[in-house]
């Protein structure tokens, strides 16, 4: 475990906690894309299939349970909580996320490390996570005033995979392991998708103005 990996995991944890905090305390999911949350729940469900078969460490198992639990509870909150669901803007959150799942599944069926169920599912989760933020970014462009917590959530979510890239670079030079090129490419694509968000997020922070993405 190197500092980049730990920072990445803590940033990821912070992102889900910020979102849970927002939804649980102010009972509002305004500006939050349910589609992205559903995609993330699917990402974790397909990536952590080995949670019962392969024990890596207590940390690893605990973090997997936290990410699974938080992503599914966020989906539940937005869909079924009698107060939160009223603040969900389904007319704006219209990204057809099935159009993301299908190509990712097809790509995983053709481009993977080895053709086993767990491996294809894991590869699918990598591809899906790379594009899972798209419905949320589209919604942010439509939502005129992005509240701070939602902006922080997206920023932290984008930063975690960026830190993982440093982790892979660090491990590449210090350990006799290798990172499969699929992991590299999916991680870099995912981080690049946040590039314009990061730019506008930094600009709004620097000029101390409310974050707004150009339509």
């Amino acid at each position: 475990m190197n500092i980049f990996r730990l920072a990445g995991d803590m940033t990821h944890l912070a992102s889900v906690l910020v979102l849970l905090l927002k939804i649980h305390t102010i009972k509002s999911c305004a500006g939050v894309s349910l589609k992205t949350q559903e995609l993330y729940a699917l990402v974790f469900a397909t990536r952590y299939l080995d949670i019962v078969t392969d024990f890596i460490s207590v940390y690893n198992t605990v973090m997997k349970l936290i990410f699974l639990g938080s992503s599914f509870s966020i989906v539940w909150y937005i869909r079924h909580h009698r107060v939160v669901r009223r603040s969900y803007d389904k007319d704006q959150d219209t990204f057809r996320h099935y159009l993301l799942m299908i190509p990712c599944m097809l790509l995983a069926l053709f481009v993977h490390e080895k053709f086993t169920f767990k491996e294809v599912m894991w590869t699918f989760s990598l591809y899906l996570e790379a594009v899972a933020i798209l419905p949320q970014l589209v919604l942010l462009q439509r939502t005129r005033n992005i509240d701070n917590l939602t902006g922080q959530y997206v920023f932290l979510l984008g930063a975690y995979r960026g830190l993982y890239i440093f982790n892979w670079i660090y491990r590449y030079f210090t350990e006799p392991h290798f990172v499969h090129w699929i992991t590299w490419i999916a991680g870099v694509v995912q981080t690049l998708l946040y590039a314009d968000f990061f730019y506008y997020y930094f600009e709004s922070w620097k000029n101390n103005v409310r974050l707004q993405l150009p339509a």
């Binding site: 890596i56 490390e113 894991w122 290798f178």
Partner: peptide
């Protein structure tokens, strides 16, 4: 042996 490192990552 080259274990693929992703096994221990999240």
């Amino acid at each position: 042996d080259k274990m693929n490192m992703r096994k221990d990552e999240l």
